[in-house]
Design a protein around this nucleic acid. Structure first.
Ligand code: MN
Ligand code: MN
Ligand code: MN
Ligand code: MN
Lengths: 231, 231
DNA sequence: ATAATTTTTTAATCTTGCCTAAACAATAGC
DNA sequence: GCTATTGTTTAGGCAAGATTAAAAAATTAT
């Protein structure tokens, strides 16, 4: 029941999985972009993955995963995120430095290996960037995280739960702003002029956050939104 | 100062390193055997490694590592053995199951990664099979381990310190005999007829050990060899 | 509807690492 | 010293995964 692909094949399946979740189908071009390859390379690999019955590919249309393909993709993502937890929690890496290594580690080990790693780490629910870790069946709890831009009310309290961009420079910028996952803020003001925000953290310290930053944060609303519409 | 090769290149360097330590030079054929490749493949790779200045290869003679090549080889071996410690100590793998995964993990990570892993594991001196773990410079403490066949005196006490064969079936056989690294025995008798041994463990239990098993165990003599030459 | 643009596919090549079979060196036997 | 054997290298090829450039299909614009 559990088979596995080559490193390259697994990377394609991961990319298709993520694109499919976003757009329903994975276009040739989007896959190429995600993997930093050429569209011609994608056409070639899709032929191979279709033969393996891990994707269904309609020429000129795009690709979707078969159940088997989805299983390999989620298992790879599970390993990726578990390894990221390991690197941060056990090896004390900063959260902006783990992705590159997880990208290699994710292709190692079988189901038994993964379950041992998971148990060793205490079955974490999310990775260091707040992304959910699929269980052994490839499922994960639906998450309540929402893009900050949707939270317009003043005094709204929220907790930072994730990032929608895990690039190192963004993560280091969050470090500089002293914004960590799990930290709680309330909205002081939102400036339509440039889309920036002012927040207050739990110890009463105010923070200014640009639109660029806020739009890439995933937050959880803390209480059934107090009805104070305007300050 | 620290560069790194492809997976295949690192495997060649490891093989050459080990053969060079045993025979002074690594013959084409011995390398091929160790890597389960053909001599023709070895010739090809040696050309490449020579260009990289990681080995010196004289046609029809054999290969030796340059300092750079030795550095990559020992770093790979260091990673291999550290990962084996991780797998046994942290993920509770049996010692006969870790080599295959370490063979893949050894190619991941840079010097910083390796030092973090080492620190996390408490800077172990040996891997689960008793093999010494090179330090960050590729050096390790000379070990006092000796093949059991050289220990002929009765009543000689010794501690099992390693195996010269890490094949799964041998390791599982040791498990069956209840022989673990660090366990102490004394020689009761040696039977020249078939080369087998009788030992007594610390709690007075006697064990019979075949020549095949004894000849693949590395032991440390416990005391300045009592001069009882014959019983 | 037709033309222009974008996207995908095909075709021809490249690289890495491997193989088999044949040619070539080195060694050993006599 | 010549011959047989062993070990090494060359030659020719294959597979996976990529690339570039050109052809074909789909989409968008007029
Ligand atoms: Mn990641
Ligand atoms: Mn990957
Ligand atoms: Mn090993
Ligand atoms: Mn290896």
């Amino acid at each position: 029941m559990n088979s596995t692909g080559s490193i390259s094949q697994e990377n394609y399946l991961k990319a298709i999985f993520k694109l499919q979740n976003e757009h329903g189908i994975a276009s040739n071009q989007a896959i190429a972009e995600k993997l930093a390859a050429t569209p011609a390379a994608v056409t070639g690999m899709l032929r191979k993955l279709t033969e393996l019955e891990w994707v269904e590919h309609t020429a000129y249309q795009g690709a979707v995963l078969t159940p088997k393909g989805k299983q390999i993709a989620t298992s790879t993502i599970r390993k990726h995120r578990l390894w990221e937890v390991f690197l941060v929690e056990k090896l004390q890496f900063k959260w902006d430095a783990v992705h590159q290594w997880a990208e290699e580690l994710e292709h190692i080990g079988d189901a038994d290996f993964t379950e041992r790693l998971d148990a060793f780490l205490g079955c974490p629910a999310t990775d260091p960037h707040g992304d959910p870790i699929p269980d052994a069946n490839g499922d994960w709890a639906g998450n309540e995280r929402v893009i900050l831009a949707d939270v317009l009310a003043c005094n709204q309290e929220f907790t930072v739960r994730g990032v929608s961009n895990s690039a190192s420079d963004f993560l280091r910028h969050l470090d500089a702003l002293n914004i960590q996952l799990g930290k709680q803020f309330s909205v002081v003001e939102h400036f339509p002029f440039d889309g920036s925000w002012e927040w207050k953290d739990e110890s009463g310290v105010n923070v200014r956050v640009s639109r660029e930053v806020a739009s890439q944060l995933l937050v959880e609303l803390n209480r059934p939104q107090m009805s104070s519409k305007s300050q």
